[in-house]
Design a protein around this nucleic acid. Structure first.
Lengths: 125, 125, 125, 125
DNA sequence: GTGGTCTAGACCACG
DNA sequence: GTGGTCTAGACCACT
């Protein structure tokens, strides 16, 4: 389900967070689904348990997953789109910088549009 | 010209790099233009000279600027878009992840499209 | 393994870079091998950690080594010879200049040929 | 006769030194020939006079040129191949490092041999 | 414990 | 005056 790139510059815990988000967004994980335990996950990903724990904490902090003591961790019922102003501004700024990078690599709006279309096809299934 | 956000999680030197890229892409800095000296820049940004130097070296590595010994630093003549496969793939993946984030924040394709249009208006001037 | 010449005109960090390249080329360091940590290396070479770090970063930029957060630095799996046109031209020009120097020192082609043979013997082992 | 690359990483004065050496080695400049004055040279190369002066000093230090007060500077009669042990060792070490670089760029002995042959053709004319 | 970033302050080569 | 290198010492994020 998840693939960790050991040598990526994005931290492993962040890769887990992002991977989970994507799985949920694409519907592979649905509200109420049970997540593998920290130990299981760390075993399958060949990753330090602390790292998985940190990822889960991050996800919980954003209300994306919930832990029920003794039962396990589950995808939260309402992944309420927070629309928090701060995070939104961060997103906007990231996108801005990404477009600058694209400009320097000779990647035009059409290409980005194409990438976008391709991505949203994967979501609407 | 450049604004540094102290508490940002993106390193200062990286902010300088990104800022310069944007200034060049927007045409505020043109090929052959002289950049402020390391010491000047460090004074105006209230940042350590080493930090500015690191940013300049990074920019030079990408062929975006060039330094002439004892004379100063200048915007390179042809920032030839390398179209390097590796960096391109990185960009693509960043965009992918950005769209995941957008999905969780309830930001749809239309909004992103709007941001994109706005950005490219700033370039074509 | 590495020897630093304090008074050399080539910077210390560059000497480290070159030394590591040689060790790898000769097979003393193989893909996947762990490099000494920045702190270790700085201790054994009697050099500032920042200097070692700079060398490691340079090596990483060329894809020769890779760092895993919190784990350490490793020799990259496939130091794919980029065959980048620019670096190749630089090499050629360096060699050209070296031959000029040789001419002035009375070193003829035969001597250079001999050096070359000796070097490649060290590699093919 | 000489071409200066403004943005090269090798200092301008060094480029002049190397260029003169090459001209002499190839026979374009012969013992006894008069060199352009510092002012002339600085004018034609569009370079700071101090820079040319430094190059001339360097060349004189190695006994390659000689200045006669009031008359000008001339190519020395006997560009005696000093065979100084120290410089020779430096050359050898430079060549060694060059071969390491070549190895990483995928440049084999044959290619280097070819470069060498080509160079020596230019000399023997 | 690992590397990454930053500061402060110093010296040097180049033009 | 310009950038390049180096040191010393500090804090932080990641595992």
């Amino acid at each position: 389900m998840l693939k960790i790139i050991e040598r990526s510059e994005t931290p492993i815990y962040e890769q887990i967070v992002q991977g989970m988000k994507e799985l949920i967004l694409k519907g592979a994980l649905r509200p109420g689904d049970k997540l593998p335990s920290v130990r299981e996950m760390s075993a399958t990903l060949l990753v330090n348990p602390n790292t998985v724990a940190k990822a889960y904490q991050e996800l919980e902090r954003y209300g994306i997953i919930q832990t029920s003591r003794g039962k396990g961790t589950f995808v939260a019922e309402s992944s309420a789109p927070g629309m928090e102003k701060e995070r939104l501004e961060k997103l906007r700024s990231s996108f801005h910088q990404l477009l600058v990078e694209a400009g320097f690599l000779g990647v035009g709006p059409e290409q980005i549009q194409a990438w976008m279309d391709e991505f949203h096809k994967g979501i609407k299934e």
